[in-house]
Design a binder for these strands. Structure first.
Length: 498
RNA sequence: GGCCGGGUAGCCGAGUGGUCAGGCGGCGGGCUGCAACCCCGUAGACGCGGGUUCGAUUCCCGCCCCGGUCUCCA
């Protein structure tokens, strides 16, 4: 199968061939765990998951790593390079607020490791609910940055200093020297003289004075008062953000050059630009990742998501019904996040969610979870995969699936079962076996209401042609959030998907 | 201002130098006690202005709009 991806590094669609035939190494920039993940975060993570699943069906073994950033980073208060308030400290403050309101989510909000642990747990739950294979089957491939400071990051920083790609400045901090790396700017299309310093509003002048070049970025910040700190040859302190991904990709994937690196479009500059400089500076290779794939941002009702606009939604907000007023099945949210092309903005809307619910329902009507998957070389499966092979054209591929669903025959369920290995929207693939330590409304709800009982009563009423009574019961089921279906075997009520 | 991605029917979204995307919704019909589910049919589109061409939504140029980024946002 000829796979082609748009490579951000070369700005064009290129044939994809792994370095080692049959095996793909892939690194995904993961979450920073100082709060619950939002749906925009998961747009990117679901994209990485679909990519993984596609590559597997295309015949590759995929070695995937998704990092969890649990080192305190700065708040978004316009300060960079080690200034500003620690994000973990800010998270602690939020947790204390919730404790005051009677919800004690963790014992000690002042312990940044406990805060990180709490939100890491929440993230992995969300990831499982949304069907991320890595969280469900390979949680060991989701390294914590805090575990890699000493074994991976400090040695890499040392190596960069040795090779004159990094230096210790007068303020004691270690910076990467961008002028030592001629390719700096290649990924983002920037050049050092074109970058407008400070235009992003994230630079604080006082941190710039000690750098050789304004674009030099932090590798190590000595700070003995920091909540999270490690001993290093440059004093006790903490690592810069960019170094963690370079170090962990190398440490866990075990390669100097990997096949694919993904992330959100905001990561292109500076984060991924810096990763390339660090890794290539340390290894001496031309490439860190051969392919860079970036997903575009998610918008909410046509606008960018922001706390000030009140359209900032966590995964939990959506699933628990705080966004639409109705609980949403995780498969519906997954489908909503994956149905658009990764290289376009997707627009998250209440209507879109309802559309996705219909799509998931139709899909589930046509295939059962115990159906055996059709062979990979089945023409209809191939048509689906070939479309995905063209830069992960998921919308085109879904068009093929829905077209095929119009023809209901014996083969259809097995074809859809195979397709589902990528879509991941059948009940068993998603949200199963998640033991949440945070109460989920939609998990609890079903127990206090017995739809089976009412369905039986409804059927009895219909049998004696008491349609008024039957309609009353049906309305009751609908009001409780069920889809009511009349089948040959009687009335069936299923939880509404959204 | 530089760099990067995008703009396709009411909504979401593929694709193509000439003839079908697909989904939701709409309309008409079938099924139904009535509905829902399901099935069949059907209408409607390519941001704006030039250019190339027999023909442009598609290729080229200019413009407008949206999104990202310009050093710790997925």
């Amino acid at each position: 199968m000829d796979i082609r991806f748009y490579n951000s590094l070369t700005h064009q669609i290129e044939p994809f061939t792994p370095i080692q035939a049959g095996t793909v190494s892939m690194y995904n920039c993961g979450p920073t765990v100082y709060d619950y993940a939002h749906i925009g975060n998961f747009r990117t993570f679901v994209f990485a998951d679909v990519l993984r699943r596609f590559l597997e069906l295309a015949g590759h073994t995929v070695h995937q790593v998704m990092n969890i950033t649990d080192v305190g980073h700065m708040t978004d208060d316009q300060l960079a390079d080690g200034g500003g308030e620690d994000k973990m400290a800010a998270a602690a403050k939020r947790l204390k607020e919730s404790k005051k309101q009677g919800v004690a989510l963790i014992e000690n909000p002042d312990d940044p490791y406990a805060v990180a642990e709490f939100f890491t747990g929440a993230f992995i739950e969300d990831a499982k609910l949304l069907g991320l294979k890595i969280a469900d089957e390979y949680p060991g491939q989701m390294p914590r940055a805090t575990d890699h400071v000493v074994p991976s990051m400090i040695p890499m920083i040392g190596s960069l200093i040795e090779k004159d790609h990094a230096y210790m400045a007068e303020d004691g901090a270690v910076y990467f020297s961008v002028q030592s790396f001629p390719d700096y700017g290649k990924l983002s299309g920037n050049s050092l003289d074109k970058l407008r310093g400070g235009a992003g509003g994230r630079v604080q002048d006082s941190h710039q004075t000690h750098k050789r070049h304004p674009a030099d970025f932090l590798l190590w910040k000595p700070d003995a008062s920091h909540l999270m700190k490690w001993d290093s040859p440059w004093g006790a302190g903490y690592p810069g953000w960019h170094i963690e991904c370079s170090a962990m990709a190398k440490a866990i994937l075990g390669k100097d050059t990997i096949d694919i690196h993904t992330g959100g479009e905001d990561n292109i500059f500076p984060h991924h630009e810096c990763e390339i400089a660090q890794t290539c500076g340390a290894t001496g290779n031309d490439h860190f990742a051969n392919f860079w794939l970036h997903s575009r941002f998610l918008l909410v009702e046509g606008e960018k998501m922001s706390k000030s606009k009140g359209n900032f939604h966590t995964v939990r907000d959506v699933l628990e019904g705080r966004v639409t007023g109705r609980a949403v099945d995780p498969a519906v949210l997954r489908f909503e996040l994956l149905k658009g092309h990764y290289r376009s903005n997707i627009n998250f809307t209440a209507k879109g969610l309802a559309d996705s619910a219909s799509a998931v329902r139709r899909f589930r009507n046509a295939v059962h979870t115990d159906t055996k998957s059709a062979p990979l070389d089945h023409p209809d499966v191939q048509a689906f995969l070939e479309t995905l092979a063209n830069d992960l054209n998921i919308a085109g591929a879904l068009g093929i699936v829905f077209e095929r669903m119009k023809k209901s025959d014996d083969e259809l369920p097995s074809i859809l079962s195979r397709v589902n290995e990528i879509l991941g929207i059948l009940p068993t693939n998603i949200g199963s076996n998640v033991q949440s330590h945070i109460p989920f409304r939609h998990n609890v709800e079903a127990e206090v209401f017995s739809p089976k009982n009412l369905c039986d009563q409804l059927d009895a009423a219909r049998a004696e042609k008491n349609f008024t009574k039957a309609d009353t019961i049906r309305q009751q089921l609908i009001d409780e959030g069920y889809d009511v279906k009349t089948t040959k075997g009687g009335t069936v009520a299923t939880k509404r998907l959204a």
